[in-house]
Nucleic acid binder design. Structure first.
Lengths: 123, 123
DNA sequence: TAATTATTTAAGCAAATACTTAAATAAAAA
DNA sequence: TTTTTATTTAAGTATTTGCTTAAATAATTA
């Protein structure tokens, strides 16, 4: 694709375009990190896992499999993705591994999860 | 996969499992909607588009293509996805179509975008 | 030590994603 | 009316995702 300016509208505000590019450049690392967390939470299964962890503090893969009615490997792979970027952490108790939301992104996730509201099921 | 209870730990708290399932059921519609928005914002290009719209109020596909150095069709397809679920809206001015963040999810997106912070580039 | 249990990992695969290029729309200008 | 410009849509494709089943780890119990 062409990398030169493709927008040749008379009204195209080149000052604005340049400012936007600079703005983005200033926050690129932050955006990269946040959109990565968003992508993780953007999967419904993982979002449910985070929702449950917020409510229950800690749960094991086996619990999630029961609650979400999914296979243990499927759950385990979702947990791994979130653990890989430190969204969640683990604690071992015998054979059981408990997952919980890590301190690192807790506030951010709490803010998002606070938007989850209870609804009345319409009959 | 087996849908029967797979977790047979002695410690498995069946009351907790049941409560979690009920909790999830109460918020299923909400979770579905939020995780859909999160999935959209979880793409770095789309997150940047939202970030830019928040700052500039409205921009056209052509602007985004310039700023993000991407092809116009690629941008257009990202915009379409967000428009399809009413995350953004459009306004036509001649040949130009301006996109902006819709009122509907503005507060939610603003809260997320407020976490984007400027960083010092380490030399 | 051998068997059981909880979890993870790996390989395979179908579906979804995000781009590309080319063609189709639609409005403005010549 | 023809051409140009802005945008969208469509078709094709490489990559990523999210599951499945089977095998590998690791800790507990018999």
């Amino acid at each position: 694709m062409k990398l030169e300016t493709s927008c040749i509208r008379a009204e195209a505000d080149h000052t604005q375009i340049l400012r936007c590019k600079e703005d983005l450049n200033m926050v690129s690392t932050s955006i990269e990190g946040i959109s990565k967390i968003m992508a993780l939470a953007g999967n419904e299964v993982r979002f449910k896992i985070l929702f449950l962890l917020k409510r229950e503090t800690e749960l094991c893969p086996c619990d999630f499999a029961d609650i979400l009615e999914m296979s243990v490997p499927a759950i385990s792979q979702h947990l791994r993705k979130m653990k890989d970027v430190n969204v969640i952490t683990t604690r071992r108790d015998g054979q059981t591994i408990f997952y919980r939301i890590s301190k690192k992104n807790e506030d951010f996730l709490t803010a998002i999860l606070s938007n989850v509201t209870s609804e009345r099921k319409i009959a």
